[in-house]
Amino acid sequence: MCILPFHALERKNVSANVPQTYKLSEEQLTFYKDNGYLVIKGLIEFTTLYACKQRFIQISKGLIDRGFITITKNPFSKPGLTGEDAINKIQELLYDDVFSGYSENPQLLDVVSQLIGPNIMGVHYMFINKPPGTGVHPPHQDLHYFPFRPADRIVAAWTAVDHVSEENGCLYVIPGSHRSPLYEHDYPRDEEGKLMKLYHGILDPKAAPENARVPLAMAPGDTVFFHPLLVHGSGPNTSKVLLR
């Protein structure tokens, strides 16, 4: 999965085959305003998805110079796993020649500009990997990680590279939670009381009740845009197929 929070981004040349605009309807704009997120089906084309996926595999296996890209390994992966099977995510992708094909997608940028205004800039770009056996990403708000404001001028774009479902750990959101304050975050504890040190999560158990969680099953190319105060997370990957 690719995710990219926007705050401001210079537009560069991209493939002439990619449509240059994507006009949001009043219904879509209202949905985003009311719920704090918006899913657009098939926004990113196959060519970009395939290129990003192959780049991730090359970097995970050490086949190319990764430059400024950082790698986070899954501390809970089974012993003996190598390459992409042991990787949780790679980050700092904005200046990579291949990954920039995603961040410079004109339709993506057009949607972003309609949600937060012009003069946009990409802030942080990562590729998330969830091999089978990967655990939950606890409920959280992205604004917890950002030192800049205002919140209404920030939006995240998250694109599915493979099919994602509840079985393999898709995102879930709490509609309307972007109107909440910024909750206190820290390392949460699992059902056995052990600290989950991979991610920070919201400490208030009332912030993301199970019955309020809306899972976002998505096909490759589907993209969700969400407000930085939106409470969201993801479930475990209980499948046997690699998810990216």
Rank of each mutant, 00 (worst) to 15 (best):
G62D: 07
I71E: 10
V111R: 08
T82P: 03
G201V: 02
L171P: 01
D97K: 13
I202W: 06
M1A: 12
L216P: 04
V214R: 08
F46L: 07
F31D: 13
L93P: 00
N237T: 09
A86H: 13
K240W: 09
F226C: 06
Y37H: 12
Y125H: 14
P75Y: 03
K53N: 08
G122P: 15
V39T: 14
G176W: 03
K23P: 01
D190I: 08
S103Y: 02
G235F: 12
G193T: 07
A16Q: 14
Y199C: 10
Y172T: 08
D186E: 14
Q107A: 05
L43H: 04
Y22C: 13
M196V: 11
R179Y: 15
H227K: 04
Y102R: 00
V224D: 07
T82I: 15
S177A: 09
N74Y: 07
F31T: 13
V136L: 06
I64K: 09
Q91D: 13
L243P: 00
I69Y: 01
L229H: 14
E192N: 15
Q20I: 11
I71G: 05
P19D: 06
K12V: 10
V224R: 09
H124Q: 10
G42C: 03
F31A: 15
V18N: 07
V18K: 03
E92Y: 12
T47G: 02
W158A: 01
I128M: 13
Y145I: 10
I71N: 09
K33W: 05
T72A: 11
L63D: 15
Q141V: 01
K197S: 00
P205G: 10
G169P: 05
H7S: 12
S15E: 08
D65N: 14
L49C: 07
Q54G: 02
P150A: 12
A156R: 07
S239T: 12
L229E: 02
G36K: 01
D96F: 01
F225P: 10
L4Y: 02
L195H: 01
P236Y: 06
N13D: 15
R55I: 00
P79L: 09
D162K: 06
G101I: 00
V123Y: 12
I128F: 11
L29Q: 14
C52W: 00
V164E: 12
L81W: 09
V173Y: 02
Y199V: 05
S100Y: 00
G117R: 10
A219C: 05
V214S: 04
H163W: 06
V14R: 11
V18T: 13
L93M: 05
L198Q: 08
R213L: 05
P75H: 05
S165Q: 09
P228E: 11
G201Q: 04
I69F: 00
V241S: 12
P205D: 14
F56R: 01
H232W: 03
G83N: 08
E210H: 10
T223K: 00
P205K: 11
